[in-house]
């Protein structure tokens, strides 16, 4: 009996030693030499591997930053300026401050604003739907509300509001990685600066149809009338293809355009006071996302 036990123990010990030696040599053989700074940078990274920076993941980003002569041109949208400062410090460089950005859904065509003209009955994916036809409303440009952006978002920052049927961004969670922008077949989502104190103005419409067509399809569509462009003191607004666009590099968030817009397609977000000049219904600000997150 004792002999068997001893024999078993001896066998296992010999086997263990044998394998550890083999493992040691294998590990030596396949060892990959890597710049130690890559590991350091990677440890600073958020580790979301979202690809928002344009690299395959955090490791690829770290590799690229270490190899590049300077951190300029590199930005981690998830970690933001704080992470980039740490990365720059680790590499002995100065970081370049970048304005915080946020994904903006440029469509306000909720069920109430944009009536359904037909009923979609296929796989719930915007991509499938838009490959098939123009969509279940008379607007062929707006948000389809089937949530390809939701499944693309790794941070749970975008949701399709079931009462409105359009995607909404939770700006506290959004890292502006741009995954939703790529996922949206309609090109409705744009990455824009968050603005001072989160205050910003944006045209919530991408409808390129002529004004009359847009008006029929949606009550808050941009009809390309150009009133906003005339009202803008900073020449930040251009109207092209029947739709206005606010250049965020020029916009000073004065909100003159918001008051001017006849359909309410221009949205002002996170302003504490209502508009002073025209108490138009158009000026209703978008729902404040902060409240939503608090509720969760």
């Amino acid at each position: 009996m004792t002999g068997t036990i001893l024999f078993t123990i001896a066998c296992l010990v010999v086997l263990g030693l044998l394998f550890s030696v083999v493992l040691y040599f294998v590990a030596q053989k396949f060892k990959v030499e890597e710049d130690p700074r890559i590991e350091i940078v990677e440890s600073i990274m958020p580790g979301a591997n979202c690809g928002g920076c344009g690299h395959a993941g955090c490791h690829a980003f770290a590799e690229a930053v270490v190899k590049a002569p300077s951190v300029e041109g590199f930005f981690c949208p998830v970690g933001g300026n704080a992470t980039m400062a740490k990365v720059a410090a680790a590499l002995g460089q100065e970081a370049v401050e970048k304005e915080p950005m946020v994904a903006v859904v440029r469509c306000n065509g909720s069920f109430g604003n944009r009536a359904k003209t037909n009923q979609y009955d296929g796989y719930a994916s915007c991509k499938v739907m838009s490959a098939l036809y123009t969509g279940d409303t008379a607007c062929k440009y707006g948000c389809l509300g089937l949530g390809d952006c939701v499944s693309a978002c790794k941070f749970g920052a975008i949701k399709v509001n079931p009462e409105k049927g359009i995607a909404e961004v939770d700006e506290n969670k959004c890292t502006s990685c741009g995954a939703c922008v790529k996922a949206c077949p309609k090109g409705v989502i744009e990455i824009r600066p968050k603005g001072k104190n989160g205050r910003r103005v944006c045209v919530s419409c991408v409808n390129k149809d002529k004004g009359a067509v847009t008006r029929k399809a949606c009550s808050v569509g941009c009809i390309g009338c150009g009133k906003c462009a005339k009202a803008c003191p900073f020449e930040a607004i251009t109207v092209e293809n029947n739709v206005a666009y606010i250049d965020f590099t020029k916009c000073k968030s004065c909100r003159k355009c918001v008051a001017e817009c006849p359909t309410g397609a221009i949205n002002a977000v996170n302003f504490p006071t209502p508009l002073p000049p025209k108490p138009a219904p158009a000026a209703t600000p978008a729902p404040a996302p902060q409240n939503e997150t608090e509720n969760k």
Binding site: T117, N118, Q119, Y120, D121, L132, Y133
Partner: peptide, 8 residues
């Protein structure tokens, strides 16, 4: 009613 649209 509204037409139903679906892929084939």
């Amino acid at each position: 009613n509204k037409l139903i649209v679906s892929p084939s």
